[in-house]
Design a protein around this nucleic acid. Structure first.
Lengths: 215, 215, 215, 215
DNA sequence: TATGAATGAGAATTCATTCAT
DNA sequence: GATGAATGAATTCTCATTCAT
């Protein structure tokens, strides 16, 4: 197929001419950013293999060759996207202090509570693979960290004798987050597809409570 | 990338010479079946775009041109895989009679309780897109049907005034199933990665109970 | 530049439709051979970097993709050419039994005494580099072997105390051969450019005699 | 290949900051010279097509765009290099007064008797082609002039009835010079590769004597 | 004079598909 | 039914060159 337009997912961002090109000198950073944004969306919604560097460049409104200039290769661009996403998620994970916050965080990352679509794409991108070993490890590392974080606010400690049970449950919570993300990526499944973070909050609360609260 | 070997997922089935080519008669059906199996696995684990028809043919131990002979195109092969998966899942959905069965069914379809890997790949394949409209609709149709089935055993009826709440919850249950599937597809996330259906059953029971049981 | 037509060197062989394609089955070897021939000529006259795989395929009258099919890459094709040339030259070196033969061999390899152009291109190709390490070593290995062979018919023995002198002289003889080759490759330098093997024989005899005959 | 570092040949001249940029005035000429030097070396060792303008600019430690500024194009830069080399060689040819000088001149131009590497690269560059007609003619013109010069000190006169014999022999002498050059350019062929001008002088004397001395 | 940014043409390679045996 | 050969349309990447500061 020619995935010129992402079938699932929001419309490709128009050439993003908010704030006109700063006329040349020092425009590099801006261009880099535009590419990163388009790539992130494309990779997240269409996957690595189905995404064309030309798609990305066109979405960003810049010349294709600049991808190689700024990221060395399609692979390099993907890695850069992944790094950005991981940074964001590491940050988000750091903010989780107790069980009560978990449902809200999941809801906002799957349904989008913020203006930009970034967080909504983040989890999706995390599931895309370029086939490269290094990125594969980055991904697994983050997932491990994330589930340990969830487990730890539920009382899990590394080396815990019966820890596996709690860790597994934390990973099931993580599963919900990813599951919502992938199901929302294929549109038309109402009411989930257009549920707001608020809609999701209550059921998620009960779910997290059932899985992670020790009684 | 050269996805000659699927990184995640079980080893590509050896040219499958269990039962030697039945001389001549009926060889066509056999070949068709071999291709269908290999394709299903490849598409599920590597995705549509990253999978090469040559990969599939090699896995199946047959000539590449036969893919076009039997399925008209790569796209056609994908559609055939999807159809098979959908049939299986429709069947599985039909068997769900009450809430208690749900955790077990999810567990067996995500962790594999049966000999073949088929069920394990089924959900994964359902998330892969070839970009084609028609397959997209098939997929959405199945998901809709599936979540309505889940909701209905929890008491939901079409046209229900407050039905959306229950339908959404059913879709969250579905989300867990898909979430587990995608997380298990990227290896190394223990204990989830190697959890058995049995390991998953108890927490899933609590989860389903929390989400779908009316009190 | 667009080196569609080799400026120096003989006209690119016409699509070589002597002996029509054996209709399909088993045609692979023929195609391989056609490519090898065209490549050899192109690489020899235009150099590796200036030669386009499309040039080669067009000369051979076959589809470009077949280069990758049969030789895996442009680099692989170059290596195959080099191997062929080296084989030929090793063979030629083996035939050198005494000093008197040397001038004739050089003459025939630089001016071409045979029908095909092969030998004429051989030395030229040997000077072309693809930048690859392995081919670099093959080349140097052959040159070493060749000069030792020349030296040995002049009485040189490995480990010879004053051997370096003779070896150096043998390499000067080799230099003439390559020098003639490169000068003939840029056309228009008469009378050398169109000298026949016979024209070269006498002066070469005197040259070899002066350099390698011990008195 | 990515010919970022010339495999054969001396190390690329470090950004050449001997004598810091003379403030402003005359910086242009300096830059031009730096580019000319780097280009000459690159073109000589890697060939025209395999050399990147970026390689040259980097070697020279200046911005790529300056190549177009000062030489209009890669082609223009090559032509400038060629002109410089030809001037030098015309000068050298003019100095040849009798047969005895020839071996020394060849030795010094192939093995380098002078401090800079210039002369060593000169002959090599002369063998490189950009595919452009005009430079091709310049090259051939020089070669013709050079061989006539050699022949003339051996007694040849234009229009000489039996002149071709002598002219051919002169071109064979020229061949040795180029042959040595190309063989030394692919390293590892000892003792030739590291022979000094002195090492070459004696055998060359005998060679020239055998070819050009009339008896 | 110098430089970072941007562009467009072209190069190698991959891949689904069709053809002829 | 099955197979090796061949094809043409992409796709990624490189590179000389031009632009605007």
């Amino acid at each position: 197929m020619k995935a010129s337009s992402s079938p699932a997912g929001p419309a490709p961002l128009a050439p993003a001419d908010n704030s006109p090109p700063p006329s040349r000198r020092g425009a590099g950073a801006r261009t880099r950013g535009l590419l990163l944004d388009s790539a992130r969306r494309r990779f997240a919604y269409d996957g690595y293999a189905a995404t064309t560097v030309r798609d990305i460049a066109d979405d960003a409104g810049v010349n294709v060759a600049l991808i190689n200039r700024y990221f060395r290769s399609k692979e390099g661009l993907f890695e850069a996207c992944l790094k950005a996403v991981i940074d964001e998620l590491v940050h988000a994970a750091g903010a989780v202090a107790d069980l009560e916050q978990i449902p809200g965080i999941i809801a906002s990352h799957t349904a989008g509570v913020v203006a930009t679509d970034g967080p909504r794409d983040a989890l999706l991108l995390l599931l895309r693979s370029s086939g490269d070993e290094r990125t594969e490890e980055m991904r697994t590392g983050l997932l491990r960290m994330f589930s340990e974080r969830l487990a730890s606010v539920a009382g899990w400690r590394p080396g815990d004798p019966d820890g596996d049970g709690l860790l597994l449950r934390a990973q099931l919570v993580l599963s919900v987050a990813f599951g919502i993300t992938v199901l929302r990526a294929s549109p038309g499944l109402e009411p989930l597809a257009s549920a707001t973070a608020q809609d999701l909050a209550e059921p998620l609360r009960e779910l997290v409570d059932a899985l992670l609260t020790r009684r």
